[in-house]
């Protein structure tokens, strides 16, 4: 088991966004969490990357380590967990290459050059725009850069928050093909999506989140066939 989350509770001010959810991910898997707007998907990822505090009673174990002992930057630098946040959050004042180099900030191994080259070969459009400011990239190119950045910063677990957002179908296919390739090279992926169809086709397993509760889990094929899921998330 790579990551196990037990009884995760997160509150914003007075509102509890996650009501004690539990789930786990094995090494090498692609797992998705689907749910409606405001269900708590982004909050779940933010709690894992330690960008929002979890309440007492929460247990999160990652590679037999207590995740709650790590600060947000250490989650990346010491645990190799990377997070592509909602809205990408590229550093728009920096170039494509600078964004990639920044993502390697904490890496001390000598594979940096190789991994950056790998990103540029997966996404040739980024290679052509190495010295362009990230803020001037198209939405799809920005998404590629966000994924590429996550690829070089955390090689073990990648948290993806709606990577399909704002992408044309062809661009989307490109990004998801690249993600599958990255997964086959050994990176575990936890994906969060509103687009349930897409997410369940891509992931091996899925969880359904509703108002801060995990209401369903199962193999993607089973969830795709589930009447409740069909009705609520797949448009009948």
């Amino acid at each position: 088991m790579l990551l196990s989350v037990e009884n995760l509770r997160v509150s914003y001010d007075q509102i509890r966004a996650l009501q004690g959810i539990s789930f786990e991910i094995d090494e090498g898997e692609i797992v998705c969490i689907i749910g409606a707007n405001g269900a708590g998907k982004s909050t779940t990822l933010l709690a894992i990357s330690r960008m929002v505090p979890a309440e007492a009673g929460t247990r999160m174990t990652y590679m037999d380590k207590d995740l709650l002992q790590y600060s947000a930057d250490k989650v990346v630098s010491q645990l190799a967990i990377s997070h592509v946040p909602e809205g990408r959050r590229l550093f728009e004042n920096l170039t494509v290459m600078e964004n990639l180099r920044l993502a390697c900030f904490a890496r001390k191994d000598d594979g940096v050059r190789r991994d950056v080259d790998r990103v540029l070969s997966i996404f040739p459009r980024l290679a052509e725009r190495e010295h362009q400011k990230a803020g001037t990239l198209s939405g799809g190119e920005q998404q590629m850069l966000a994924v590429g950045r996550a690829f070089v910063s955390g090689r073990r677990l990648m948290l993806l928050d709606e990577p399909s957002m704002g992408l044309a179908p062809l661009m989307m296919k490109g990004v998801f093909d690249a993600l599958r390739e990255i997964n086959q090279e050994g990176t575990t992926i936890l994906l969060v999506e509103q687009n349930a169809q897409l997410a369940l086709q891509f992931a091996g397993r899925g969880y359904v989140l509703e108002n801060g509760h995990m209401v369903l889990e199962g193999k993607s094929a089973d969830l795709l066939a589930d009447d409740g899921v069909k009705q609520a998330y797949l448009g009948g």
């Binding site: 250490k74 990346v76 550093f91 728009e92 920044l102 910063s153």
Partner: peptide, 24 residues
């Protein structure tokens, strides 16, 4: 330098900087 790079990134968006493994 990479520290300068982190400084410029932080100047743009200090909230997102920890996601790059950089300590604020």
């Amino acid at each position: 330098t990479k520290w300068g790079l982190a400084m410029r990134a932080m100047a743009f968006d200090y909230v997102a900087v920890p996601l790059m493994g950089v300590s604020v």
